[in-house]
Design a protein around this nucleic acid. Structure first.
Lengths: 235, 235
DNA sequence: GTCTATATACGGATAGAC
DNA sequence: GTCTATCCGTATATAGAC
Protein backbone atom coordinates (compact mmCIF):
# COMPACT_ATOMS: atom_id res chain seq x y z
CA UNK A 1 0.00 0.00 0.00
CA UNK A 2 1.25 3.48 -0.87
CA UNK A 3 0.02 6.79 0.49
CA UNK A 4 -1.93 7.44 -2.71
CA UNK A 5 -3.64 4.08 -2.47
CA UNK A 6 -4.42 4.74 1.17
CA UNK A 7 -6.12 8.00 0.32
CA UNK A 8 -8.22 6.37 -2.38
CA UNK A 9 -9.05 3.46 -0.12
CA UNK A 10 -10.01 5.34 3.01
CA UNK A 11 -11.60 8.33 1.34
CA UNK A 12 -11.93 10.42 4.40
CA UNK A 13 -11.38 14.12 4.51
CA UNK A 14 -10.82 16.64 7.22
CA UNK A 15 -14.25 17.99 6.26
CA UNK A 16 -15.79 14.82 7.66
CA UNK A 17 -14.23 15.58 11.01
CA UNK A 18 -15.84 19.01 11.15
CA UNK A 19 -19.19 17.47 10.26
CA UNK A 20 -18.77 14.79 12.88
CA UNK A 21 -17.83 17.35 15.51
CA UNK A 22 -20.98 19.29 14.76
CA UNK A 23 -23.13 16.17 14.96
CA UNK A 24 -21.65 15.18 18.31
CA UNK A 25 -22.05 18.62 19.85
CA UNK A 26 -25.41 19.79 18.55
CA UNK A 27 -26.61 20.65 22.04
CA UNK A 28 -23.70 22.75 23.16
CA UNK A 29 -23.15 24.53 19.83
CA UNK A 30 -25.46 27.54 19.68
CA UNK A 31 -25.32 27.77 15.89
CA UNK A 32 -27.96 25.47 14.47
CA UNK A 33 -27.57 25.76 10.71
CA UNK A 34 -25.28 22.87 9.72
CA UNK A 35 -23.65 24.56 6.76
CA UNK A 36 -22.54 27.61 8.76
CA UNK A 37 -21.52 25.60 11.79
CA UNK A 38 -19.39 23.13 9.85
CA UNK A 39 -17.70 25.92 7.91
CA UNK A 40 -16.87 27.86 11.06
CA UNK A 41 -15.74 24.80 13.00
CA UNK A 42 -13.30 24.29 10.16
CA UNK A 43 -12.01 27.84 10.48
CA UNK A 44 -11.74 27.52 14.25
CA UNK A 45 -9.97 24.16 14.26
CA UNK A 46 -7.56 25.14 11.51
CA UNK A 47 -6.66 28.37 13.23
CA UNK A 48 -6.30 26.70 16.63
CA UNK A 49 -3.99 24.02 15.28
CA UNK A 50 -1.96 26.50 13.31
CA UNK A 51 -1.38 28.89 16.19
CA UNK A 52 -1.01 26.25 18.90
CA UNK A 53 1.44 24.15 16.97
CA UNK A 54 3.62 27.20 16.59
CA UNK A 55 3.58 28.58 20.08
CA UNK A 56 1.49 26.30 22.26
CA UNK A 57 -2.22 26.17 23.05
CA UNK A 58 -1.81 28.03 26.32
CA UNK A 59 0.03 30.86 24.60
CA UNK A 60 -2.69 31.25 22.01
CA UNK A 61 -5.07 33.94 23.17
CA UNK A 62 -8.71 34.15 22.19
CA UNK A 63 -7.79 37.35 20.38
CA UNK A 64 -5.22 35.43 18.32
CA UNK A 65 -7.82 32.85 17.50
CA UNK A 66 -10.39 35.49 16.64
CA UNK A 67 -7.99 37.23 14.26
CA UNK A 68 -6.82 34.08 12.49
CA UNK A 69 -10.21 32.40 12.23
CA UNK A 70 -11.92 35.60 11.11
CA UNK A 71 -14.63 35.17 13.74
CA UNK A 72 -15.21 37.59 16.58
CA UNK A 73 -14.62 36.64 20.20
CA UNK A 74 -18.34 36.50 20.78
CA UNK A 75 -18.92 34.25 17.78
CA UNK A 76 -16.23 31.81 18.92
CA UNK A 77 -18.07 31.19 22.16
CA UNK A 78 -21.10 30.05 20.20
CA UNK A 79 -19.07 26.95 19.30
CA UNK A 80 -17.51 26.06 22.63
CA UNK A 81 -18.11 27.12 26.20
CA UNK A 82 -14.48 27.60 27.19
CA UNK A 83 -10.97 27.43 25.82
CA UNK A 84 -10.48 24.13 27.66
CA UNK A 85 -13.55 22.65 25.97
CA UNK A 86 -12.06 23.54 22.61
CA UNK A 87 -8.92 21.62 23.57
CA UNK A 88 -11.02 18.64 24.54
CA UNK A 89 -12.97 18.68 21.30
CA UNK A 90 -9.80 18.57 19.24
CA UNK A 91 -8.34 15.76 21.30
CA UNK A 92 -11.55 13.77 21.18
CA UNK A 93 -11.95 13.96 17.42
CA UNK A 94 -8.35 12.95 16.76
CA UNK A 95 -8.70 9.92 19.01
CA UNK A 96 -12.00 8.77 17.55
CA UNK A 97 -10.92 8.95 13.94
CA UNK A 98 -7.60 7.21 14.58
CA UNK A 99 -9.20 4.32 16.37
CA UNK A 100 -11.89 3.78 13.81
CA UNK A 101 -9.62 3.73 10.79
CA UNK A 102 -6.81 1.76 12.38
CA UNK A 103 -9.18 -0.95 13.53
CA UNK A 104 -10.92 -1.10 10.18
CA UNK A 105 -7.72 -1.45 8.18
CA UNK A 106 -6.01 -3.97 10.44
CA UNK A 107 -9.02 -6.22 10.64
CA UNK A 108 -8.95 -6.44 6.84
CA UNK A 109 -5.70 -8.39 7.09
CA UNK A 110 -5.19 -11.91 8.40
CA UNK A 111 -1.57 -12.99 8.81
CA UNK A 112 0.73 -11.25 11.30
CA UNK A 113 3.23 -9.83 8.82
CA UNK A 114 0.49 -8.22 6.76
CA UNK A 115 -1.23 -6.95 9.90
CA UNK A 116 1.99 -5.42 11.18
CA UNK A 117 2.76 -3.80 7.85
CA UNK A 118 -0.76 -2.41 7.63
CA UNK A 119 -0.70 -1.11 11.20
CA UNK A 120 2.52 0.78 10.62
CA UNK A 121 1.55 2.14 7.23
CA UNK A 122 -1.97 3.10 8.22
CA UNK A 123 -0.76 4.95 11.29
CA UNK A 124 1.86 6.81 9.30
CA UNK A 125 -0.55 7.67 6.50
CA UNK A 126 -3.21 8.81 8.94
CA UNK A 127 -0.75 11.05 10.72
CA UNK A 128 0.26 12.42 7.34
CA UNK A 129 -3.29 13.44 6.49
CA UNK A 130 -3.91 14.81 9.97
CA UNK A 131 -0.41 15.93 10.93
CA UNK A 132 -1.43 19.09 12.77
CA UNK A 133 -3.94 17.11 14.79
CA UNK A 134 -1.47 14.43 15.80
CA UNK A 135 1.20 16.94 16.68
CA UNK A 136 -1.27 18.93 18.71
CA UNK A 137 -2.53 15.85 20.55
CA UNK A 138 0.94 14.82 21.53
CA UNK A 139 2.16 18.21 22.62
CA UNK A 140 -0.92 19.30 24.51
CA UNK A 141 -1.74 15.99 26.17
CA UNK A 142 -0.23 16.96 29.51
CA UNK A 143 -2.22 20.20 29.61
CA UNK A 144 -5.44 18.26 29.96
CA UNK A 145 -7.28 18.01 33.26
CA UNK A 146 -7.80 14.71 35.10
CA UNK A 147 -10.38 12.70 33.19
CA UNK A 148 -9.24 13.97 29.80
CA UNK A 149 -5.64 13.34 30.76
CA UNK A 150 -6.52 9.72 31.48
CA UNK A 151 -8.02 9.39 28.03
CA UNK A 152 -4.86 10.75 26.47
CA UNK A 153 -2.77 8.15 28.26
CA UNK A 154 -5.21 5.41 27.31
CA UNK A 155 -4.92 6.54 23.72
CA UNK A 156 -1.14 6.37 23.79
CA UNK A 157 -1.36 2.83 25.10
CA UNK A 158 -4.09 1.85 22.66
CA UNK A 159 -2.03 1.82 19.46
CA UNK A 160 0.90 0.34 21.29
CA UNK A 161 -1.31 -2.49 22.46
CA UNK A 162 -2.48 -3.14 18.91
CA UNK A 163 1.10 -3.54 17.73
CA UNK A 164 1.95 -5.66 20.74
CA UNK A 165 -0.92 -8.05 20.00
CA UNK A 166 0.18 -8.46 16.41
CA UNK A 167 3.73 -9.20 17.51
CA UNK A 168 2.43 -11.77 19.95
CA UNK A 169 0.39 -13.51 17.25
CA UNK A 170 3.39 -13.60 14.97
CA UNK A 171 5.58 -14.98 17.69
CA UNK A 172 3.06 -17.73 18.48
CA UNK A 173 2.90 -18.66 14.82
CA UNK A 174 6.67 -18.78 14.65
CA UNK A 175 6.97 -15.96 12.14
CA UNK A 176 8.54 -13.39 14.44
CA UNK A 177 11.46 -13.86 16.74
CA UNK A 178 11.15 -11.36 19.57
CA UNK A 179 11.90 -11.63 23.26
CA UNK A 180 9.89 -8.69 24.54
CA UNK A 181 6.78 -7.78 22.54
CA UNK A 182 5.76 -4.92 24.75
CA UNK A 183 9.05 -3.08 24.61
CA UNK A 184 9.40 -3.81 20.92
CA UNK A 185 5.95 -2.36 20.32
CA UNK A 186 6.91 0.78 22.25
CA UNK A 187 9.93 1.33 20.07
CA UNK A 188 7.99 0.79 16.87
CA UNK A 189 5.47 3.33 18.10
CA UNK A 190 8.28 5.80 18.76
CA UNK A 191 9.50 5.48 15.20
CA UNK A 192 6.01 6.10 13.89
CA UNK A 193 5.48 9.14 16.09
CA UNK A 194 8.67 10.80 14.96
CA UNK A 195 7.11 11.23 11.56
CA UNK A 196 4.53 13.73 12.75
CA UNK A 197 6.59 15.18 15.57
CA UNK A 198 9.45 16.21 13.28
CA UNK A 199 7.40 16.97 10.21
CA UNK A 200 9.33 20.21 9.55
CA UNK A 201 12.61 18.31 9.36
CA UNK A 202 11.39 15.68 6.94
CA UNK A 203 9.57 18.21 4.79
CA UNK A 204 12.73 20.27 4.45
CA UNK A 205 14.62 17.18 3.33
CA UNK A 206 11.93 16.11 0.89
CA UNK A 207 11.42 12.79 2.61
CA UNK A 208 8.05 11.44 1.54
CA UNK A 209 5.82 9.47 3.86
CA UNK A 210 6.24 6.45 1.59
CA UNK A 211 10.00 6.58 1.90
CA UNK A 212 9.73 6.97 5.65
CA UNK A 213 7.31 4.07 5.89
CA UNK A 214 9.66 1.90 3.88
CA UNK A 215 12.56 2.55 6.21
CA UNK A 216 10.52 1.90 9.33
CA UNK A 217 9.35 -1.37 7.85
CA UNK A 218 12.92 -2.33 6.98
CA UNK A 219 13.97 -1.61 10.54
CA UNK A 220 11.15 -3.63 12.01
CA UNK A 221 11.65 -6.45 9.57
CA UNK A 222 15.36 -6.67 10.28
CA UNK A 223 14.61 -6.97 13.96
CA UNK A 224 11.53 -9.17 14.06
CA UNK A 225 11.61 -11.56 11.15
CA UNK A 226 13.00 -15.02 11.61
CA UNK A 227 15.66 -15.96 9.07
CA UNK A 228 15.59 -12.55 7.64
CA UNK A 229 17.20 -12.50 4.21
CA UNK A 230 18.28 -8.99 3.25
CA UNK A 231 14.83 -7.59 2.34
CA UNK A 232 11.48 -8.01 0.71
CA UNK A 233 9.69 -10.37 3.02
CA UNK A 234 7.77 -7.76 4.96
CA UNK A 235 7.60 -5.17 2.23
CA UNK B 1 29.07 0.09 29.51
CA UNK B 2 26.16 -0.04 31.93
CA UNK B 3 24.35 2.85 33.56
CA UNK B 4 26.26 2.29 36.81
CA UNK B 5 29.57 2.35 35.00
CA UNK B 6 28.52 5.51 33.18
CA UNK B 7 27.75 7.26 36.43
CA UNK B 8 31.12 6.30 37.90
CA UNK B 9 32.89 7.28 34.73
CA UNK B 10 31.29 10.63 34.11
CA UNK B 11 30.91 11.68 37.72
CA UNK B 12 28.71 14.60 37.09
CA UNK B 13 25.81 15.59 39.20
CA UNK B 14 22.91 17.93 38.83
CA UNK B 15 24.62 20.05 41.49
CA UNK B 16 27.34 20.83 38.98
CA UNK B 17 24.76 22.27 36.66
CA UNK B 18 23.52 24.66 39.32
CA UNK B 19 27.08 25.73 40.03
CA UNK B 20 27.76 26.21 36.34
CA UNK B 21 24.62 28.23 35.91
CA UNK B 22 25.67 30.51 38.71
CA UNK B 23 29.15 30.95 37.26
CA UNK B 24 27.79 31.81 33.82
CA UNK B 25 25.29 34.33 35.15
CA UNK B 26 27.18 36.12 37.89
CA UNK B 27 26.32 39.52 36.46
CA UNK B 28 22.61 39.09 36.08
CA UNK B 29 22.08 37.19 39.33
CA UNK B 30 21.69 39.71 42.14
CA UNK B 31 22.60 37.21 44.87
CA UNK B 32 26.37 37.17 45.22
CA UNK B 33 27.06 34.53 47.85
CA UNK B 34 27.73 31.32 45.93
CA UNK B 35 26.40 28.92 48.52
CA UNK B 36 23.00 30.62 48.76
CA UNK B 37 22.73 31.20 45.05
CA UNK B 38 23.53 27.63 44.08
CA UNK B 39 21.12 26.25 46.65
CA UNK B 40 18.29 28.50 45.46
CA UNK B 41 18.98 27.93 41.78
CA UNK B 42 18.54 24.28 42.62
CA UNK B 43 15.20 24.92 44.26
CA UNK B 44 14.07 27.12 41.37
CA UNK B 45 15.11 24.73 38.60
CA UNK B 46 13.67 21.70 40.34
CA UNK B 47 10.36 23.42 40.95
CA UNK B 48 10.20 24.80 37.41
CA UNK B 49 10.85 21.42 35.85
CA UNK B 50 8.41 19.69 38.15
CA UNK B 51 5.54 22.08 37.52
CA UNK B 52 6.23 22.66 33.83
CA UNK B 53 6.57 19.01 32.99
CA UNK B 54 3.17 18.43 34.54
CA UNK B 55 1.20 21.26 33.03
CA UNK B 56 3.48 23.21 30.73
CA UNK B 57 5.81 26.13 31.31
CA UNK B 58 3.30 28.69 30.12
CA UNK B 59 0.67 27.38 32.54
CA UNK B 60 3.04 27.63 35.47
CA UNK B 61 2.48 30.96 37.18
CA UNK B 62 5.15 32.79 39.16
CA UNK B 63 2.95 32.19 42.17
CA UNK B 64 3.07 28.43 41.53
CA UNK B 65 6.83 28.64 41.28
CA UNK B 66 7.06 30.72 44.43
CA UNK B 67 4.99 28.22 46.39
CA UNK B 68 6.85 25.13 45.21
CA UNK B 69 10.35 26.57 45.43
CA UNK B 70 9.68 28.13 48.81
CA UNK B 71 11.01 31.49 47.64
CA UNK B 72 8.94 34.63 47.42
CA UNK B 73 8.10 36.27 44.12
CA UNK B 74 10.54 39.05 44.86
CA UNK B 75 13.35 36.63 45.66
CA UNK B 76 12.79 34.72 42.43
CA UNK B 77 13.49 37.82 40.39
CA UNK B 78 16.91 38.10 42.00
CA UNK B 79 17.87 35.04 39.95
CA UNK B 80 16.40 35.88 36.57
CA UNK B 81 15.00 39.01 34.98
CA UNK B 82 11.93 37.47 33.42
CA UNK B 83 10.07 34.22 33.09
CA UNK B 84 11.36 33.87 29.54
CA UNK B 85 14.94 34.26 30.72
CA UNK B 86 14.38 31.37 33.13
CA UNK B 87 13.23 29.23 30.21
CA UNK B 88 16.35 30.17 28.29
CA UNK B 89 18.65 29.33 31.18
CA UNK B 90 17.20 25.85 31.49
CA UNK B 91 17.47 25.23 27.77
CA UNK B 92 20.99 26.55 27.60
CA UNK B 93 22.31 24.41 30.43
CA UNK B 94 20.77 21.24 29.07
CA UNK B 95 22.32 21.85 25.66
CA UNK B 96 25.77 22.67 26.99
CA UNK B 97 26.04 19.64 29.23
CA UNK B 98 24.74 17.25 26.58
CA UNK B 99 27.21 18.44 23.97
CA UNK B 100 30.19 18.36 26.26
CA UNK B 101 29.63 14.86 27.58
CA UNK B 102 28.55 13.32 24.28
CA UNK B 103 31.59 14.67 22.48
CA UNK B 104 33.92 13.60 25.25
CA UNK B 105 32.65 10.04 25.39
CA UNK B 106 32.43 9.48 21.63
CA UNK B 107 35.93 10.79 20.99
CA UNK B 108 37.23 8.19 23.43
CA UNK B 109 36.27 5.48 20.95
CA UNK B 110 37.83 4.73 17.59
CA UNK B 111 35.99 2.21 15.46
CA UNK B 112 32.47 2.93 14.15
CA UNK B 113 30.65 0.13 15.98
CA UNK B 114 32.08 1.21 19.33
CA UNK B 115 31.36 4.86 18.54
CA UNK B 116 27.78 4.10 17.61
CA UNK B 117 27.25 1.99 20.71
CA UNK B 118 28.75 4.70 22.90
CA UNK B 119 26.72 7.47 21.28
CA UNK B 120 23.47 5.63 21.87
CA UNK B 121 24.30 4.55 25.41
CA UNK B 122 25.70 7.91 26.48
CA UNK B 123 22.69 9.75 25.16
CA UNK B 124 20.31 7.39 26.92
CA UNK B 125 22.24 7.47 30.20
CA UNK B 126 22.50 11.25 30.11
CA UNK B 127 18.80 11.57 29.54
CA UNK B 128 18.26 9.20 32.44
CA UNK B 129 20.24 11.38 34.84
CA UNK B 130 18.62 14.56 33.51
CA UNK B 131 15.23 13.25 32.47
CA UNK B 132 13.21 16.29 33.57
CA UNK B 133 15.59 18.57 31.71
CA UNK B 134 15.41 16.61 28.47
CA UNK B 135 11.65 16.33 28.63
CA UNK B 136 11.36 20.03 29.31
CA UNK B 137 13.69 20.94 26.46
CA UNK B 138 11.72 18.89 24.00
CA UNK B 139 8.29 20.04 25.05
CA UNK B 140 9.05 23.71 25.43
CA UNK B 141 11.27 24.12 22.38
CA UNK B 142 8.55 25.63 20.26
CA UNK B 143 7.69 28.21 22.91
CA UNK B 144 11.06 29.87 22.49
CA UNK B 145 11.43 33.15 20.65
CA UNK B 146 13.41 33.50 17.42
CA UNK B 147 17.10 33.21 18.27
CA UNK B 148 16.54 30.71 21.06
CA UNK B 149 14.22 28.75 18.81
CA UNK B 150 16.99 28.49 16.25
CA UNK B 151 19.31 27.11 18.88
CA UNK B 152 16.77 24.48 19.84
CA UNK B 153 16.53 23.31 16.23
CA UNK B 154 20.30 23.32 15.87
CA UNK B 155 20.50 21.21 19.00
CA UNK B 156 18.03 18.68 17.62
CA UNK B 157 20.11 18.39 14.48
CA UNK B 158 23.40 18.24 16.39
CA UNK B 159 23.04 14.79 17.92
CA UNK B 160 21.46 13.50 14.76
CA UNK B 161 24.46 14.71 12.81
CA UNK B 162 26.81 12.94 15.20
CA UNK B 163 25.04 9.64 14.60
CA UNK B 164 24.93 10.27 10.89
CA UNK B 165 28.68 10.83 10.75
CA UNK B 166 29.35 7.62 12.62
CA UNK B 167 27.10 5.70 10.25
CA UNK B 168 28.91 7.22 7.30
CA UNK B 169 32.30 6.21 8.67
CA UNK B 170 31.08 2.68 9.27
CA UNK B 171 29.65 2.49 5.78
CA UNK B 172 32.92 3.68 4.23
CA UNK B 173 34.81 1.09 6.19
CA UNK B 174 32.41 -1.59 5.02
CA UNK B 175 31.14 -2.39 8.50
CA UNK B 176 27.63 -1.01 8.11
CA UNK B 177 25.24 -1.63 5.28
CA UNK B 178 22.89 1.31 5.05
CA UNK B 179 21.39 3.11 2.11
CA UNK B 180 20.39 6.36 3.78
CA UNK B 181 22.50 7.45 6.75
CA UNK B 182 20.58 10.63 7.42
CA UNK B 183 17.18 9.01 7.65
CA UNK B 184 18.60 6.08 9.61
CA UNK B 185 20.16 8.53 12.07
CA UNK B 186 16.80 10.28 12.46
CA UNK B 187 15.09 7.06 13.37
CA UNK B 188 17.78 6.07 15.84
CA UNK B 189 17.40 9.46 17.46
CA UNK B 190 13.65 8.93 17.70
CA UNK B 191 14.17 5.67 19.57
CA UNK B 192 16.52 7.37 21.99
CA UNK B 193 14.14 10.26 22.61
CA UNK B 194 11.25 7.99 23.45
CA UNK B 195 13.09 6.98 26.58
CA UNK B 196 12.78 10.38 28.19
CA UNK B 197 9.54 11.37 26.53
CA UNK B 198 7.63 8.35 27.87
CA UNK B 199 9.49 7.97 31.14
CA UNK B 200 6.25 7.46 33.08
CA UNK B 201 5.38 4.46 30.94
CA UNK B 202 8.72 2.74 31.29
CA UNK B 203 8.92 3.48 35.00
CA UNK B 204 5.53 1.89 35.54
CA UNK B 205 6.68 -1.22 33.72
CA UNK B 206 9.98 -1.40 35.56
CA UNK B 207 11.98 -1.16 32.38
CA UNK B 208 15.52 -0.11 33.31
CA UNK B 209 17.58 2.17 31.14
CA UNK B 210 20.03 -0.68 30.60
CA UNK B 211 17.32 -2.93 29.28
CA UNK B 212 16.04 -0.18 27.03
CA UNK B 213 19.55 0.55 25.76
CA UNK B 214 20.05 -3.12 24.97
CA UNK B 215 16.91 -3.30 22.88
CA UNK B 216 17.73 -0.13 20.95
CA UNK B 217 21.17 -1.50 20.21
CA UNK B 218 19.69 -4.80 19.04
CA UNK B 219 17.35 -2.92 16.72
CA UNK B 220 20.13 -0.81 15.29
CA UNK B 221 22.46 -3.75 14.99
CA UNK B 222 19.88 -5.85 13.17
CA UNK B 223 19.43 -3.07 10.68
CA UNK B 224 22.94 -1.73 10.18
CA UNK B 225 25.41 -4.52 10.60
CA UNK B 226 26.64 -6.39 7.57
CA UNK B 227 26.36 -10.16 7.83
CA UNK B 228 24.53 -9.79 11.04
CA UNK B 229 24.54 -13.07 12.95
CA UNK B 230 21.79 -13.19 15.54
CA UNK B 231 23.40 -10.99 18.19
CA UNK B 232 26.47 -10.00 20.14
CA UNK B 233 28.55 -8.12 17.63
CA UNK B 234 27.47 -4.65 18.62
CA UNK B 235 26.74 -5.42 22.22
C1' DG C 1 -25.65 34.40 14.14
C1' DT C 2 -22.32 37.66 14.76
C1' DC C 3 -20.50 41.83 16.35
C1' DT C 4 -18.42 45.43 19.80
C1' DA C 5 -17.61 46.72 24.24
C1' DT C 6 -16.70 45.58 28.73
C1' DA C 7 -16.73 43.06 33.35
C1' DT C 8 -13.64 40.65 36.10
C1' DA C 9 -9.75 38.20 37.37
C1' DC C 10 -5.27 36.77 36.97
C1' DG C 11 -0.38 36.95 35.77
C1' DG C 12 4.23 39.11 35.43
C1' DA C 13 6.95 42.28 37.42
C1' DT C 14 8.60 45.80 40.90
C1' DA C 15 8.89 49.05 44.94
C1' DG C 16 10.29 49.43 49.23
C1' DA C 17 10.35 47.58 54.08
C1' DC C 18 13.14 44.68 56.91
C1' DG D 1 18.96 38.65 50.42
C1' DT D 2 14.29 38.07 51.04
C1' DC D 3 9.62 39.39 51.97
C1' DT D 4 4.89 41.64 51.33
C1' DA D 5 2.00 44.49 48.93
C1' DT D 6 0.69 46.34 44.79
C1' DC D 7 0.80 48.16 39.98
C1' DC D 8 -0.74 47.41 35.52
C1' DG D 9 -1.32 44.97 31.37
C1' DT D 10 -3.69 41.31 29.36
C1' DA D 11 -6.70 37.13 29.22
C1' DT D 12 -11.09 34.79 29.35
C1' DA D 13 -15.65 35.22 29.11
C1' DT D 14 -20.17 37.63 28.64
C1' DA D 15 -23.83 41.25 27.89
C1' DG D 16 -26.43 43.29 24.80
C1' DA D 17 -26.86 45.73 20.21
C1' DC D 18 -27.81 44.66 15.45
Amino acid sequence: MTFDEFQQLVRFSIQDIYRETFAENRESIRVKKEKTAVKNLGLIFDATLHISNNKGFRSMTMRDLSRESGLSMGALYAYFSSKDKLLEMLQHQRRTVTRRILKERINAETDPTAKLRTAIQTHLYLSEVMQPWFYFSYMEAKNLKNSEGQKAIASELYTEKIIEEILKQGKDKGVFEISDQQLTASIIKAMIQDWYLKRWKYAKRNVSVDRYARLVLEFVEAFCLKNHVSEGTLL
